[in-house]
């Protein structure tokens, strides 16, 4: 089933149908349905408090850590409902990784930060295998050249941009299928932002990527699909080029032209 008549039918990595999220009695997300394609970058845009981050966190059940949060509707990963009872959240999060707004490396060495996921999921049998995973992940995150001489230094000693790439390397290391990025550049300067955007470009195709961003330019630069959220509803979803040049909804148009947000 394709809920988006304006889009080609592509491989759908994740789907959401009629998803509503409540914090206590407050409805934060109202009846959102969306398909996340496998080979593209999908951007969620919208004004602050519109629910885009909340919705992102429902996609790997990070909302479970908030006791008052409640989710209705279904979200699937490769056709499997991730909110069904008996779902192993640990497995889900290994498959759907997440990068946060503020870089949050652990207060451990760079090596241990990247090796953390492979270790807890038992990916590497030997030290040399683990070394390989760490190197591969750091290379993919474009950080290897900068840190290969100092893998034993603390991850927190890196610059903000490097820390964020370390967090991406850490997410990649468990070989996820989807990477959720929650405003990954909002704490970074323009140069570090450009590097992360480059990195997203390189990771595209290998992982389904969903990025929440405040910057419409960033959405336009890195994504193929854009969803516009407003007041907990998804107003419009389509090709990024269509959303930015020919939005169907006046609310989308108002937001994009800077009338509010």
């Amino acid at each position: 089933m394709n809920v988006h008549s304006n889009l080609d039918t592509t491989d759908q990595k994740m789907t959401a149908r009629g998803v509503s999220v409540y914090y206590g009695d407050k409805k934060a997300i109202d009846d959102v349905s969306i398909d996340i394609p496998t080979e593209y970058v999908t951007a969620f845009i919208g004004p602050s408090g519109c629910g885009k981050s909340t919705f992102l966190r429902t996609m790997n059940r990070m909302n479970d850590t908030i006791p008052s949060a409640r989710v209705e509707g279904t979200i699937t990963l490769d056709g499997e409902d991730i909110y069904k009872s008996g779902m192993d959240v640990v497995q889900l999060r290994a498959r759907v990784g997440m990068v946060f707004q503020k870089p949050n490396p652990f207060p451990k060495s760079i090596y241990d930060n990247v090796a953390y996921g492979p270790k807890i999921h038992g990916f590497a049998e030997s030290k040399s295998e683990l070394d390989e995973v760490v190197e591969k992940s750091l290379r993919r995150a474009g950080l290897w050249q900068e840190v290969k001489e100092r893998l034993d230094d603390s991850g927190t000693a890196l610059s903000g941009g490097q820390q964020q790439r370390l967090c991406i390397a850490r997410a990649i290391a468990v070989d996820p299928e989807v990477i959720l990025m929650d405003e990954p550049c909002s704490a970074l300067d323009p140069i570090a932002t450009a590097k992360i955007e480059e990195l997203i470009d390189e990771l595209k195709g290998r992982y389904a990527i969903v990025i929440v961003t405040h910057s419409m330019q960033q959405a336009a630069r890195v994504s193929e699909r854009t969803a516009f959220f407003h007041l907990g509803k998804m107003v419009e979803y389509g090709r990024t080029s269509d959303i930015f040049t020919n939005p169907q909804e006046t609310r989308t148009q108002d937001y994009i032209t800077g009338r509010y947000g």
């Binding site: 790997n60 990070m62 850590t65 640990v90 497995q91 889900l92 999060r93 290994a94 990784g97 997440m98 946060f100 503020k102 949050n104 490396p105 652990f106 207060p107 953390y116 996921g117 807890i120 999921h121 967090c167 850490r170 997410a171 468990v174």
Partner: peptide, 12 residues
């Protein structure tokens, strides 16, 4: 953020 980071990696 530390806790979230670890949980998001699939740690228990």
């Amino acid at each position: 953020a530390m806790r979230d980071g670890s949980l998001a990696m699939g740690a228990t």
